[in-house]
Amino acid sequence: MLEVKDLRVNYKTQHGRPVTAVRGVSFTVPDHSFVGLVGESGCGKSTLGFAISRLLNVKRNEVSGYVQLNGKELLTMSDRELRKLRWSKIAIVLQGGMNAFNPVLKIKQQFMDVMRAHGKFRVQDMVERIGYLLEQVKLDREVMEAYPHELSGGMKQRVAIALSLVLEPELIILDEPTTALDVVVQRAIVDMLQDLQRRMKFSVLFISHDLGLVLEVAQRVMVMYAGDIIEDESADVLLKGGNHPYTKALLNCYGDPQSEEVRLVGIPGAPPDLSQPVVGCAFAPRCADAFAPCTLHQPPRVKTETGSICCHLYTEMKGGSKIGN
């Protein structure tokens, strides 16, 4: 189980104030669960993913808070310990497009590099394992003999997923894994991922800007805005419309393909400047339902039946629980 508490990430800038990309985020990813993390560009979702796996450049970032995997603190762990834990416990899948693989090594060699970094394996066993995993992501075994440039974008993404499974990790963080692909390939990969997750029993943190896609595969979805998770809710509730005005607005951005007249609605305004401290609710200036306390006080996290939410509409400020109505 992954537990994140009060995680903060500051990007140091060349001049002036640091930019706070992640503002005290807390959440958990239970074992064998498929959790989505959604937000618009620049909301800090990728930064959050990289901060959890400690992949941010130490010189340019300040990370504080707690990230615990099965009770083990990742942020303060020694580099040696961390290297052992990487990929065997937490694996990541990057957007597979251009340069996710070393262009001069065969796919096979890149799998073997990882395995060799984490133990002793016989070449024969490694080849067997690689072949098995490639079959799991519905590719030919022969793909292992290919160089990255010989594969299509969809194939590369499948290989990237197979590679993440090689040491049977407990958690896989996928950062926009399907963004560069067309809708059909996207769909096939997401379905395959869901199937693998159910059979192989690992947890998934699926980072994407595509709420529609995430809602289809994830059991729980966290919606991020301006460096904070503003709603953390089961997918079922969100599919019915969600609670937070931002989530609702996001859902409004998708047209209903069944309806005669498709009306696409954007969200007016822009996210706040994160180099300045945010007062009140970060979404308030763009929120249609904002009222007095929104611009003054930061809304506390309120528990709901299946999740939590940060919005004054659901605090005592406006007469308490409106949820479920």
Binding site: L85, L94, N99
Partner: peptide
């Protein structure tokens, strides 16, 4: 490049990442 980042995430040794 992304494959360097991936190499780090994979827990490859410094030597492998820097040279290979």
């Amino acid at each position: 490049e992304d494959y360097i980042l991936l190499g780090r995430a994979e827990g490859l040794s410094e030597t492998v990442i820097s040279i290979r």
